[in-house]
Design a protein around this nucleic acid. Structure first.
Length: 960
RNA sequence: GGGCGGUUAGCUCAGCUGGUUAGAGCGCCUGCCUUACAAGCAGGAGGUCGCAGGUUCGAGCCCUGCACUGCCCACCA
């Protein structure tokens, strides 16, 4: 850190602007502001009173609430987080600056499995284990871990300047949230929507817990399909051949099933088979589910180890024999195989079958295999007692199931209205498809870290007591011999409740009245089902019976957890590869931020965040936006330098003139009125783009405006006006400086949501310590004033720009040294643009702007001459035509051959364009059907091209 | 097995309801240390919009088929 920056940190938030370093160094300012924003509690939102709320709404503003998808306590910030946070921060800052009451609520998720695993690993390295510690001590240990490391990701977030309300930070295991989770569970249980029972669930033998369908990732792989012969009892030499991909499960078979219509097996149904290796007699049963055309048409039935078999078992009242334990080792039921790991057992079973001649053909077989999302261990379907939410069940007296409600919340109603709107819209379909086919949700996990299920099992009557307060006795038989359920709840159960619980539910709080439903959810599609869908289900369910603030019943549109969902892209690496630790291509945002500055990284993400498209993060882009930050920095240096010069000349701009939009008087020079018009137009575009989550468009618009319009043209021209010499007109200099400052200040506000650090720094510098607010984030966002937009100005400026570019180009062509002044002529203008009324004649344009043209092109003097003169009097000049027909005087030998070639090329282009235009204009149905403006435009273009063509031909002739 | 995206300049991507000559950044070429900025300025080159049909006065955009590519969902042993 430079000495100067250090002083600033120590004394105040004000930069010493007179000596801004030549290059922008984000490191010198970012920590300081990040800290300042947190320390000053700038983004703290007080729950407004009814009166305040009314005032807010009277001003056409509203409450804007947004919930941070809570990162795992175990998490480290990755690019996905940063994208997510950048988008939320841009929107929150923007809405805040628009005058809305913007509340962004942060928090972290206790992340059951992930956190437990983390701490278990720690214990292992210490030579101990969770089991050795015992449940209570272990949980205490996890809390300790959480206190130590759990805040890391939020600290990183602070560093990145996220404008969240830190006073409302929550953790999903906080006392109040835990009470709410328990309340939710009890209510669902009372409504008969939670049940406990033995079912087949996805079981991870490594995590040793049940996991939901969503936590299983399917991977295609080529395995084997083995055929095994089961001898028919009482018919020596007769077999039924079954096919399986998991031969070890045969040890738990309790039947063989065939399709009732399968002719091959008609005689066998009802007969008994002897299960090889085990010796158990099992029946051949008929079940519709069996597909005759797969395998042998006969399927072994293992109710304890396969969901389909389990269903068959239920239908046929078959026994379910578990041959594998929670670690996927064979149980005593597996007889000789007991104790073997599932794969060792498979090998041995196959060997033994082979030895007994019962193994049939073996084929390669492609099937998808389920793996644990977290640890990639192959999941084993396992029969176990678990808790479920009946998402498709209507409670007694209820009109809808959870899923039905969650569908209604997203689907358009009879009037076409949707309570929740998805962006991109496509995700609505994805969501509905899933919700329409949803199964009951397994919410119990065999972990220690999490919300323990508030259920007690009675040793006496075997019934279950579910209660809000820990019970002393069984609610059914009164026995004190009750023990609490050891399972905890799926983490997504508690995070699914967040939209209501963060506002104090189950209490009906003022916060709920004011902030619920939240306005927006910004998240990635990877947690669409895990979290978004669950929040919709639970949010609608539990808020539905809360009356609105005015006492009326809450309609569905007001019970949804959020009104809009913006699903953002995936951040990939520069080669479009998914970032993953194993590939080693993970880009650490903090490292990139340190290298390029937070603002540059934010801007990169924003400029690439086009809804629906993944982001291939490229450092080249970030480099470009670092340059942009530097550009802004240097524009500031230039402006401040001139403020100083002005001060020395006794000219000062009243800071009170700043804070709005640039407001030049009617007689101000073109560039002043033009930049004001542009500023307004751009403000309009940016606001519109952000309103539709088109971050890339908003970012690109401000970028082009600042660099292209403001720096390249406006600043270059305004240099002419900033004449602090003796004879200068003080009033007009002051006017110019005022517009310059007004525009720059407004531009900083426009940029602020995208680049909060840099703009904060420079904004304070503009006011030299007299800033009207504690932060630029608390000022108002620029809004378009349509009255200022002036198409005539834009045309005039565009003409001036075209002329400038043409003159520069011809100089370049002729290799005229940049410093050398030459004379120029304008012979005419080609475009007869009638759209904006009268435009300046070339003569007027030249006389009004000769100073500007001279400054930008070093062509001086420049005058209009009639086109007819050219071929006589002006012979020997260098001539070009674009929008303007121009010529310059310069002593140089014409390279006739090159010139001819250039003109010939032009000619060819023009002829082609003309031919196509003529063809279209000759088409009667085009003239008849196309809108007038299009026809008109084409006609004009055609006539212009014709003119250009003629002139080019003539020039070519003269060349000889 | 079902469904959804993508394919536009060397690279990364825009292109909103079909409309006059398809844009940006990076990279590339040329010339400039012009007193805010060489992380800069100025000028320039570069695209038969994946392929083949179709609708239309008019298609990068709409329709059909195909190819390649990515993703999601799914209880075929």
């Amino acid at each position: 850190m430079s000495q100067q920056a250090k002083d600033v940190t120590e004394t105040s938030t004000q930069p010493a602007r007179r000596e801004l370093p030549k290059a922008y160094d984000p490191r010198a300012i970012e920590d300081r502001w990040a800290e300042y924003w947190v320390r000053e509690r700038l983004f703290h939102v007080e729950t407004p009173s009814a009166e305040d709320l009314e005032k807010l709404r009277a001003a056409a503003n509203d409450v804007f609430t947004i919930l941070l998808p809570p990162p795992n306590v175990t998490g480290r910030l990755h690019m996905g987080h940063m994208l997510n946070q950048t988008e939320m921060d841009i929107l929150t800052r923007w809405r805040r600056m628009r005058g809305d009451l913007a509340l962004w609520l942060p928090g972290t998720d206790h992340a059951g499995i992930a956190t437990q695993m983390m701490v278990e690993r720690q214990l292992t390295s210490e030579g101990t284990s969770r089991q050795a510690l015992g449940r209570e001590k272990f949980v205490e240990r996890v809390w300790e871990w959480k206190r130590h490391y759990g805040g890391a990701i939020l600290d990183q977030m602070k560093r990145l300047g996220a404008s969240v309300d830190w006073s409302r930070e929550y953790f999903t295991m906080d006392e109040n949230l835990s009470v709410a989770v328990r309340e939710a569970f009890v209510r669902l249980y009372e409504q008969g929507l939670i049940y406990c029972g033995a079912y087949i669930v996805n079981w991870c033998p490594r995590c040793q817990t049940a996991i939901s369908d969503l936590e299983v990732v399917h991977e295609e792989q080529t395995g084997k399909l083995w055929e095994i012969r089961y001898p028919v009892v009482g018919a020596a030499g007769e077999f039924v051949t079954v096919a399986t991909t998991r031969p070890e499960t045969m040890l738990g078979d309790t039947a063989v099933a065939v399709n009732p219509a399968d002719e091959r097996y008609q005689g066998l149904i009802g007969k008994t088979l002897r299960l090889p290796l085990v010796g158990r007699e099992i029946p051949v049963i008929a079940d519709e589910w069996v597909k005759s055309d797969f395998g042998t048409g006969a399927v072994k039935v293992t109710p304890a180890h396969d969901p389909n078999d389990f269903a068959i078992g239920q239908r046929h009242k078959l026994a379910a024999i578990s041959v594998m334990d929670e670690t996927a080792h064979m149980t005593a039921e597996a007889g000789a195989y007991a104790g073997l790991d599932r794969y060792a057992a498979r090998k041995k079973v196959l060997e033994d079958l082979e030895a007994q001649g019962l193994l049939g053909s073996v084929r390669e077989h492609v099937n998808s295999i389920g793996k644990c999302d977290r640890c990639k261990t192959v999941v084993e379907p396992r029969l176990s007692t678990q808790w479920f939410i009946a998402v498709n069940k209507r409670p007694e007296g209820g009109t809808a199931s959870m899923a039905e409600l969650a569908i209604a919340a997203v689907k358009a109603d009879a009037e076409g209205k949707k309570a929740i709107r998805f962006t991109p819209e496509m995700y609505e379909k994805v969501y509905l498809e899933w919700m329409n086919n949803i199964y009951d949700w397994c919410i119990s996990r065999q972990l220690w870290w999490g919300h323990r299920i508030p259920a007690w099992h009675c040793a006496a009557c075997k019934q279950i007591t579910v209660a809000r307060e820990d019970p002393a006795a069984c609610a059914h038989c009164g026995s004190p011999q009750i023990t609490q359920e050891t399972d905890v709840l799926d983490t997504w159960f508690s995070s699914g409740l967040l939209p209501v619980t963060v506002f104090g539910w189950p209490q009906h709080t003022r916060d709920l009245d004011v902030f619920y439903p939240t306005q927006l959810l910004v998240t990635g599609f990877d947690i669409l089902f895990f979290w978004v869908a669950r929040m919709i289900m639970l949010g609608c369910w539990f808020s539905g019976d809360l009356p609105l603030a005015d006492g009326s019943a809450r309609p569905l549109a007001e019970s949804v957890p959020f009104r809009e969902v913006y699903i953002h892209a995936l951040v990939r690496d520069a080669d479009r590869q998914k970032m993953s630790k194993t590939k080693g291509n993970v880009i650490d945002p903090i490292q990139i931020v340190e290298q390029y500055g937070t603002d540059a990284v934010r801007f990169t993400l924003a400029s690439m965040a086009s809804p629906g498209t993944d982001i291939a993060f490229s450092e080249a882009r970030t480099e470009g936006y670092r340059a942009f930050a530097n550009k802004i920095w240097n524009a500031a240096r230039f402006i401040f330098m001139n403020v100083e010069r002005a001060r020395e000349a006794g000219i000062a701009v009243d800071p009170k003139a700043l804070g709005g939009m640039p407001s030049p008087s009617a007689d101000a020079p073109l560039e002043a009125r033009w930049i004001a018009s542009r500023m307004n137009a751009v403000a309009g575009e940016v606001n519109a783009a952000l309103g539709e989550y088109r971050f890339h468009e908003a970012a690109n618009t401000v970028y082009q405006f600042f660099w292209g319009d403001f720096c390249d043209w406006y600043l270059e021209i305004v240099k002419l006006r900033l004449d602090f010499g003796e004879g200068a007109d003080q009033a007009s200099v002051k006017n110019a400086l005022t517009i310059l400052l007004q525009t720059f200040e407004a531009a900083l506000r426009l940029l602020s949501p995208f680049m909060p650090f840099l703009t904060e720094e420079l904004w304070h510098a503009v006011y030299e310590g007299e800033a009207p607010a504690k932060s630029i984030a608390l000022t108002r966002y620029p809004v378009v004033n349509p009255g200022v937009l002036d198409p005539r100005l834009e045309t005039e400026m565009r003409d001036l720009q075209s002329l400038t570019t043409e003159l520069r180009a011809i100089r370049k062509d002729l290799e005229i040294p940049e410093r050398e002044t030459i004379q120029g002529y304008v012979l005419g203008v080609n475009m007869m643009d009638a759209r904006f009324g009268i435009r300046r004649s070339p003569g007027d344009l030249l006389s009004i702007h000769s100073d500007v043209i001279a400054k930008l092109t070093r062509v001086y003097p420049i005058q209009e001459v009639s086109s007819e003169m050219r071929y006589g009097d002006l012979l020997g000049l260098f001539w070009r035509q674009g929008l303007y027909e121009i010529a310059v005087q310069y002593e140089k030998t014409i390279d006739v051959a090159a010139e001819r070639e250039r003109l010939t090329r032009d000619l060819a282009k023009l002829e082609k364009a003309l031919a196509s235009a003529e063809k279209q204009l000759g088409n009667a149905s085009f003239l008849e059907k196309a809108p007038a403006a299009v026809v008109e435009g084409l006609k004009k273009q055609e006539s212009e091209n014709r003119l250009l063509l003629e002139k080019t031909r003539k020039a070519l002739e003269e060349l000889g």
